[in-house]
Design a binder for these strands. Sequence first.
DNA 1: CGCTTCATTGAACTCCTTCAAGGCTCGTGG
DNA 2: CCACGAGCCTTGAAGGAGTTCAATGAAGCG
Lengths: 244, 244
Amino acid sequence: MNVIENSPFTKKLSAFATLSEDELAVLERLHQRRRTFAAGSDLVHQGQPEQAAYILAAGWACSYKIQQEGTRQIVDFQIPGDFLGLRSVLLRTSDHSIEPIVEIEAAEVLADDLLEVFASTPRLAAAILWAASRDEAMVVEHLVGLGRRDADARMAHFLLELGARLALVGMGSKAGYTCPLTQYHLADALGLTAVHVNRVLRQLREAGLVTFRDGQVTFDNFDRLVALAEFDPGYLDQAGPILK
Amino acid sequence: MNVIENSPFTKKLSAFATLSEDELAVLERLHQRRRTFAAGSDLVHQGQPEQAAYILAAGWACSYKIQQEGTRQIVDFQIPGDFLGLRSVLLRTSDHSIEPIVEIEAAEVLADDLLEVFASTPRLAAAILWAASRDEAMVVEHLVGLGRRDADARMAHFLLELGARLALVGMGSKAGYTCPLTQYHLADALGLTAVHVNRVLRQLREAGLVTFRDGQVTFDNFDRLVALAEFDPGYLDQAGPILK
DNA sequence: CGCTTCATTGAACTCCTTCAAGGCTCGTGG
DNA sequence: CCACGAGCCTTGAAGGAGTTCAATGAAGCG
């Protein structure tokens, strides 16, 4: 029993495909170059060519874009087990910034390492691409929320989706989860102001649906929250990949 | 001189990599199975497992998601040269619907064809993935627009981006382009109502920035429109891919 | 102990929606 | 050939969801 089997990244990929001893060993090697980054210090900066990608081992990060006027839109949050900058390292381009929300621990993955993994263990490659595809589906769902959901449903959907993602790596359940985000983070992700985020959270709390307080999300009434958000987790748990 | 060199798909990929005779031949084969679809008839339906992908040869389509209440959010438009359902065919999942906006002509591409291309001509594969990555960057930019741009800037940005994409396949310029979208399409894409789209278009027209009328987009003052939209085409023309 | 960050609440305002009505164009059938 | 309906565009008036401005409190930290 190796420690690698308990890494969030392995947990996540295991949900996609049963991994062999060999594949676990490859994952072990990918986790070699451990680094830590302080909260708030940009990992990747908008427009900079990127040299490495990272597998997030502990802590939370977010990818975002800044507008000229200074407003910020958070595109996605990254939690343990998520890849940071996968696409950009393969394609030598980064159109957004990535910032650790708390101090994070991440394994650096160079482009060559990644290409080697793709060449040597295609099943692993498929699982990784699959995870990437799920991330993309989440971005699409996020877009739909910004375009066609009101603030309440948007918030509800967001908190539920985050819960589902955390559950996949053993960090959340239908009861709730620990969450280091501030109301400003929520505002920048949901396209709202922090003031309004506060009001929405109060409404949801007073309606007995969900409580966001002191870094803790508690689902007070999971089913009614799902109904309000029209939350359909179908886009999160997909069928098997095409490569065997 | 082969006809394949004039296909929009080839034009687009050529912007990413210079293609050899062999690669052009492979593209030729990909274009074999031509099919046409009538406007309005769903090509892919939300939730259905998808068997094939398509390369759009002529006409416009859009990918969208429908909410329970019936509201619709258009995620992206596809123009000639674009891939339809690339990710979903590789990963056997489709979380959105695709609808032709006008009658379209598309080449059907089976998963096996695609895998063969990826195995036999890696440079072509890289160019295709690269195009896919650009599409993803556009979705992200779309998300930013919905979250952090007001209706005017959103519309301006959208019309400019579409122009840049069309220019890549020789269907648009700084002067403008032909565009079969209705104001309802714009509304569903921009997260607005058709009524408000109409007002926004009027404002932009009366301000002498851009005219959207009778299926024709005319840039009346390109530079001021770019300024209003804070349009930075950086995310559209990327540096070269990592695979040579 | 002051400074910064985060959360909270009220009041005024505004951007966008909703509701409603009317116009234009084009294809279809009487 | 004209009537009629369907789809799209246009405009006004009223209402609402979310913003902006402003002020206060609580907690963490050097």
